[in-house]
Nucleic acid binder design. Structure first.
Lengths: 169, 169
DNA sequence: CGCGACGTTGATTTGCCTCAACGATTGTGG
DNA sequence: CCACAATCGTTGAGGCAAATCAACGTCGCG
């Protein structure tokens, strides 16, 4: 019997998945943290999500449909993952069908979190988004560079500077 | 043996779920269409999603945690649903565990779609969002009033008017 | 018919971006 | 261990997309 998961480590800034490549795997973050992003026309990175310990990361659309990734994933810090391929996942689910219950829970929660995130985006100005986020995830803020945070929140590093200046006084 | 699902119909503008109420159910849309929204401070409705035939709708966070809904759901047109409570769902899943595989698929897809939606929101200006959306869902556009569409896309009905005027010429 | 819901228009204001230049901090090779 | 470069963060001037507000069409419906 083979192992279904492969244990891997990535260094800071190393890529787990690259836009355009076949997306055949998903990653369970054991330790560390990554960001999911895509490249804008002008070549800059647009962050759409972060993933930390005990969350799954992938381009799930591509993973489900066995198509090419529309997102890239990159390690923010040194990161350890458990990696599973689509075919290994299927073998595993055949063998342990109860895991579907776990994934049902995981993705329902992820989707619900996404609904909440949209609510945040609609409800608050960019400045409020920053204040809210830095309150709710004050510990996480420390781990991520500001330009990635600015990108995730949907504005420019310059504007983030402006907000922080106000915030101090 | 009881039926697990309850078949219900809702008239136009009738509510399936109300913010603040205990969210004990989820809805499978058989026919029709609904929107999920919340109330802003000023009392106006902010649409965060639509759901049409063959999709599930609920406040999944509240459903999963058996807590109070942070979203409301309202019928846009006459709508028929299959409704299932949390406890009936559990009985059903105990009896037919293979359904976890179905929900695993459904929510992975929903979450993936949500990722794609965020990409859209980040990538395009409001005007581009409208053009993109009205291209990709030209049939759906017919079914939904413009002020709901404007809200969903994240801008004001006034600005939508301005865009449509340009668009015609 | 007349009221309420929905859509349109234009004037004004503002949140946030763009661009360009300048600090600060980190990492790397000599 | 220092020099120098690259990366990251800050500041300010100017501009534009989109909001706000107020008023006016228009349509469907009781």
């Amino acid at each position: 019997m083979e192992p279904f998961f492969e244990y891997r480590t990535y260094q800071k800034k190393q890529m787990l998945l690259k836009e355009g490549d076949r997306c055949n795997e998903k990653f369970f973050i054991v330790k560390g943290c990554v960001y999911i992003y895509y490249l804008r026309q002008n070549g800059t990175e647009q962050v759409i999500d972060f993933a930390i310990e005990n969350w799954w990361a992938s381009d799930f659309m591509a993973f489900q449909q066995r198509s090419d990734a529309q997102f890239s994933i990159r390690a923010i810090e040194t990161t350890a993952v458990l990696c599973i391929t689509k075919s290994h996942q299927q073998e595993l689910l055949d063998k342990v069908p109860e895991l579907n219950e776990y994934f049902h829970f995981v993705f329902q929660r992820a989707y619900a979190a996404s609904q909440m995130r949209l609510r945040m985006l609609y409800e608050h100005s960019k400045e409020e988004l920053y204040r809210q986020f830095s309150q709710d995830f004050s510990d996480f803020i420390q781990r991520v560079p500001q330009y990635l945070l600015a990108s995730f929140l949907g504005f420019t590093p310059e504007y983030l500077s402006e907000i922080r200046k106000k915030h101090l006084s």
